[in-house]
Amino acid sequence: MTLRAVIIMALGMVVAITATPLGHWLESTMVSHVLVELPLLVVAGIIFALPLKPVSQPLLNWVNRGGICGLITASFLLAFWMLPRWLDTSLGDPWVASAKYGSMVLTGMILALSWPSAHVITRAVVKIEFLTMFFRLGWLYLISPERLCNNYLLTDQIWLGRGFLLVGLALTITWAYPILFGNAVLEQQLTERKLSID
């Protein structure tokens, strides 16, 4: 599949979410809103950034060295839309909803333009902070005595809390397994051999 086709598909996905009943359907429960719709938009953003990478690299070397600035910005964008207040408001206010869609796509683009240049320690810190955040949010949503969003039921919230914990667990396993049981030295050698053959 060509890059162009992938981008068109991502664009189709964004349009489907923002301008068709699909978005409304995804937003009808908190779990699908937060754990399906928002990540899909981020993925679309990552895809949109693919052709931008070579063009923007000289600028990025100046303003986004090591991906630090971008990763900070992306973290704050995600944090902002994790505020129950704005997630809730986005459901009734089309302006806020557009800001949310735009922020998520932008987050994906920033991530894609920052991650490759990020140092391995930076990546590890981001990953750990990310999965820790899932555990924190999951716990908070499970113990919240009242509804955090006026548009969602308390049971929705509890399901999202469980979802957060599950995603946190899945990320932990996915990220920990290779560093525990993989073989980075062998992979490095294979990559080098492949490069030399190429």
């Binding site: 320690i121 810190v125 750990i128 290779p178 560093i179 993989g182 030295v185």
Partner: peptide, 21 residues
């Protein structure tokens, strides 16, 4: 400390391959 141990992990993994190793 997290930074420090991540760096230790990185160094050990890049020399020995994995933490199990």
């Amino acid at each position: 400390f997290l930074l420090l141990y991540l760096d230790v992990a990185r160094a050990i993994i890049s020399k020995y391959g994995s933490l199990a190793r």
